[in-house]
Design a binder for these strands. Sequence first.
DNA 1: ATAATAATAGTAATGATTACTATTAACAAA
DNA 2: TTTGTTAATAGTAATCATTACTATTATTAT
Lengths: 147, 147
Amino acid sequence: MQPQNNIRLTNRRKVIIEELRKLHTHPTADELYEVVRKRLPRISLGTVYRNLEFLAGKGIIRKLEIGGTQKRFDGDLDIHQHIRCTECERIDDLPAGTAVTRCDREILENTGYEIIERRVEFIGICPACRARRAGEGPGHSGVVDTH
Amino acid sequence: MQPQNNIRLTNRRKVIIEELRKLHTHPTADELYEVVRKRLPRISLGTVYRNLEFLAGKGIIRKLEIGGTQKRFDGDLDIHQHIRCTECERIDDLPAGTAVTRCDREILENTGYEIIERRVEFIGICPACRARRAGEGPGHSGVVDTH
DNA sequence: ATAATAATAGTAATGATTACTATTAACAAA
DNA sequence: TTTGTTAATAGTAATCATTACTATTATTAT
Ligand SMILES: [Mn+2]
Ligand SMILES: [Mn+2]
Ligand SMILES: [Zn+2]
Ligand SMILES: [Zn+2]
């Protein structure tokens, strides 16, 4: 979060990070916008979107791309899992160290959540793309435009 | 998939199910639309969307609400996990019985995927909603309009 | 065959997100 | 401290996936 490398430490950016870190609710962009607006009444929703995406790309915050129609964001960089209520859509943190298997009872006792479903997703690079990458050879900047 | 209970066995519906089950690519609605269109050139995209949602609600197919901008669908009802390539967005099945932990090497050997990230999501009902549900008492139809 | 109504096609609307552009402001250098 | 460069922003338009609407069609029970 230093200046240099053309990253400017704007007041917008500082407030967005601060308010996201204060919240433990994994807000959507528009939810965080409503909070930030209390300190910066002239900020635009687009600025919140742009900065959340920017900061997630820099690894300063996390973007949760879980199911549902809206993206959610998390100021907590520690590795941890989430639990979502199927009724009200709220997302809570799971206590660290919770095992994936045989943990429904443990989760119920720790959080009060009744487990309905578990979802495990692995994210990686498929054989075809690995081959294509290898063929491209070295000399490969870190910044890639995927569009 | 019987008639009765007001579910009509239309040709649209039959073809959508058949083509989804033939594919192992976890298609989006528009991808399946392009496939189904070869057999039913007059079908509309809305019909594909409506039926995919309808059939998922009936448990006849699965809706994958994983990250990404588009929903994906799966004709395979067996419990299994998925792996998504961060480069080309394709989604493949993981072999059944793969353990969640200590499995990166195993997945690499079985599928050729290089694991970058694992994501575990638990879905359940939070304490507040459980309480609210209990308060509503019995006499509760299965059909609930959440809007 | 007929009546009741579920399903459809075509289109409009919605909602989240992204793109565009003139203006503003951060900051490195003087 | 002032200045020049240009990243960031506000306001708005556009995009994209999905859902809603409605007149018409087609399925099923009788
Ligand atoms: Mn979290
Ligand atoms: Mn599958
Ligand atoms: Zn809840
Ligand atoms: Zn790939």
